[in-house]
Design a protein around this nucleic acid. Structure first.
Lengths: 91, 91
DNA sequence: ACATTAATTAGATAATTGCCTAATTATACA
DNA sequence: TGTATAATTAGGCAATTATCTAATTAATGT
């Protein structure tokens, strides 16, 4: 949960996830969309990978990243629980 | 969305939200549950308040904090959208 | 009025973060 | 085999963050 929220905290990383929602992308393709160097994007992707929010596969010299939603279900559960319990206690 | 995820990033703050899910609490009551000084807790509460995740009301010398779930709905929507769209594209 | 208690504000500091440039690794192609 | 391209790794740095202690504000009880 900690790595997950850490990953979601940064706007650049959230934007990357939104892009990967549409289609799988290579590092270069992602990099183009930001006013930021490729190493910086690489850093963000690594962080997202550690949080298991994305997966990477190598195709020749290219690395393609995909969105992984499993771990998002957990965060959903955590937030939902917070809301649900609260509502259950309303007087 | 930025303030929200910023607030949720920290374990102490997430724990505070979980506590407030059960019942409204004063700063002192929250503080007792952590190995941390009251000013530090006050700092976290301020951050949560800015993210609109909690509200505060003063009762004499005490300040009681409550969980506010409205903004959590937004985060839920954001995450849900990420999952939903992805699933919609599965082949 | 004065001391006590609850909480916030201010100021300092160590750790973490997000970015950069330079160097490296790995694949492709001529 | 050498050069170009894609990506990661390494090293450095400024900004942000989470914590502390000390000081301040505000309400309570004597």
């Amino acid at each position: 949960m900690n790595l997950l929220f850490k990953a979601l905290r940064d706007p650049t990383r959230r934007r990357i996830l939104e892009m990967l929602k549409e289609r799988d992308l290579t590092v270069g393709q992602i990099s183009e969309a930001f006013a930021m160097t490729t190493p910086s994007i690489s850093y963000h992707l690594d962080l997202l990978k550690h949080a298991q929010l994305v997966s990477a596969r190598k195709n020749g010299q290219f690395v393609t990243y995909s969105l992984e939603t499993t771990v998002l279900d957990d965060s959903l559960g955590w937030i939902l629980n917070l809301i649900k319990e609260k509502k259950g206690k309303r007087k």
